[in-house]
Amino acid sequence: MQNEGIHTASIKRVDKPTGIANILVSDQDNRIIVVPGANHEWEQEMVLEMERIIPQSKVVVFQLEIPVGMVEKALAICKEHNVQAILNPAPTDVFHEGLLQYGALLTPNESEAETIWGAEWKKAIQSFQNQVIVTLGKDGAMYPGESDAVYVTGYPVEVVDTTGAGDTFNGALTYGLSQNWDLSKSIEFANAAASLSVEALGAQTGMPKRAAVDERMTG
């Protein structure tokens, strides 16, 4: 992380191995088996540290690979301090509707949206304007507009490995929002980044640099 210029002062080391994601890739799709390791070694005192760091942040991103109780506490801190929160509700088996009360921007994929809201999820999310973006793979993404769904077109690419595409989308979306871009521009940027990520093997190794994303958007 330091080699990538990422601030690491708030990373806490614990006496557990780093979590492992065993990724099975087949027919341009993947299945991930997670061994959480250090991700589940959260303690109550860490909330005090979050209360110090979160108010200094522009955007805070969450997923559900750490204890959901800790996510909920952190979302509450974001809401209290008017800090933009993004919640990627994966894995969905621990997601519950109480997490929606904190106003975080949810970023499920299609299958996750169906798990949360059912088969009629496209109608259900219309009541969550400015709070839900659903990623659609090669078809891009969509979100509820004032009167109907708004679709942001994806990019046609040769898919090598979809692992990490959602993480790339969320990271790029977060960057856009942290730059005070509007939602539409941020999603377009995230779509371009995710399209690049699926053209290479690996999750982290497939994540593109900013210059590559800009080139895809303009080229």
Rank of each mutant, 00 (worst) to 15 (best):
E65L: 07
V150C: 11
V83G: 08
A38Y: 05
H81E: 08
Q56R: 14
D161R: 02
R31I: 06
P17G: 11
F62Q: 09
F128I: 04
N22Q: 13
S186M: 04
K12C: 12
L173S: 06
I6R: 06
I23V: 15
F189Y: 15
P208C: 11
C78K: 04
A192F: 00
L48P: 00
K123N: 15
T92Q: 05
Q63Y: 02
I66S: 14
T174G: 14
L136S: 09
A194R: 03
V134R: 01
M207R: 07
Y151M: 09
F62R: 07
L24W: 05
A90D: 03
I20G: 08
Q84C: 11
A76I: 00
L173N: 05
T107M: 01
V25Q: 08
H81K: 15
E158M: 03
W117M: 06
I133S: 10
H40F: 11
W181N: 13
T218S: 14
G103H: 01
Y175A: 13
E45F: 07
K185P: 00
P108H: 07
D93F: 05
S10H: 14
E114P: 00
L100I: 08
A165H: 00
F95K: 03
V83H: 04
P36T: 13
F95V: 05
S178D: 07
Y102V: 08
D93S: 13
H96Q: 07
I33N: 12
L75I: 05
L100R: 07
T135N: 02
E45T: 11
